[in-house]
Nucleic acid binder design. Structure first.
Lengths: 104, 104
DNA sequence: GGAAGTGTACGACGCCCGTCGAACACTCGA
DNA sequence: TCGAGTGTTCGACGGGCGTCGTACACTTCC
C-alpha cells in the first residue's frame, strides 16, 4: 500500500532562460523532446526512447527536463509516462520549442 | 605595412542549433549579446563591455559568439569593434534572439 | 512469496569548458 | 622610436556535466 514519491516538477514560469537553454543544449535531451513531441501525450514511458545512453543517464536527463519545465511525468504502474509541456513552455519562452521541433 | 589577420567568422546559415543554444547558454555571453543589442552597430570594442572576466576569457567568448554566427567583428585601429548579426541570425533561428533580448 | 520489469540514488570516472596569468602581435600617438 | 593601449594565443588549473555500474525501491504478474 506504499507508493512511490511523485517526481519533482518545475513550472516553466519559474524557469530561468539559462536553465532552459542549457536543458535544450544537449543532443540526447533534444532527441527526447522531439520524440516526445511526435507522440501522443502520456503514452511514452522513459525507457521507450531510442537514445544511446543507459538508464542511469536517461533518468538524469529526464530530471533535467523536468527542472526546466519541459516535461511532466506521472506514474502508471511500474512505468513512468511522460508529456511534453508544450503550451506552458511556449508561453514562457515563445518560439523556443518551435525552433527545436523544426529541426535543422 | 603588416596588418592583423581578419577574425574567422561563421555565417548563421552554417550554424547548428546545438551550437547556437550552447553559445547562448552562458551568462557572460548573454550579457555581451544584450549590451551589443542596446548599442549602435560598430561602436563597441571588445574591452568596452561590463563583464566580470579578464581579457583572455573575454576573447574566448567573442570567439564562441563569432563561431555561432552571433557577432561580426572588424578591426578599427588598435581596437576590434563589434556588430550583432541581428537579421541574419534571426532568419536562421527565428525568435531565439528575441527571447534572449527580451530578458527574463 | 518470488521473479521480472521499470526507474531512481549513489559513487566514481573522464572530459570538456570557463577562467587565469603570461607572453606575444599589432596600432597609434607622443 | 618608444611607450601605452588593445586583443589573441598558449599552457595550466579547477569545476561541472555526462556517463556508467551497482544497488535499491516499487509495481505487476505468475
Amino acid at each position: 500500500m506504499t507508493h512511490r514519491a511523485a517526481p519533482e516538477h518545475t513550472h516553466p514560469d519559474k524557469v530561468s532562460l539559462i536553465t532552459a537553454l542549457d536543458a535544450l543544449g544537449d543532443p540526447v535531451r533534444i532527441q527526447l523532446v522531439r520524440e516526445l513531441a511526435a507522440s501522443q501525450e502520456w503514452t511514452r514511458s522513459c525507457g521507450s526512447f531510442d537514445v544511446p545512453v543507459r538508464k542511469a543517464a536517461l533518468s538524469h536527463h529526464f530530471s533535467v527536463l523536468r527542472a526546466a519545465g519541459l516535461v511532466e511525468q506521472r506514474d502508471d504502474g511500474p512505468k513512468r509516462i511522460n508529456r511534453l509541456r508544450r503550451t506552458e513552455f511556449d508561453e514562457r519562452f515563445p518560439g523556443l520549442l518551435d525552433l527545436v521541433l523544426r529541426g535543422d
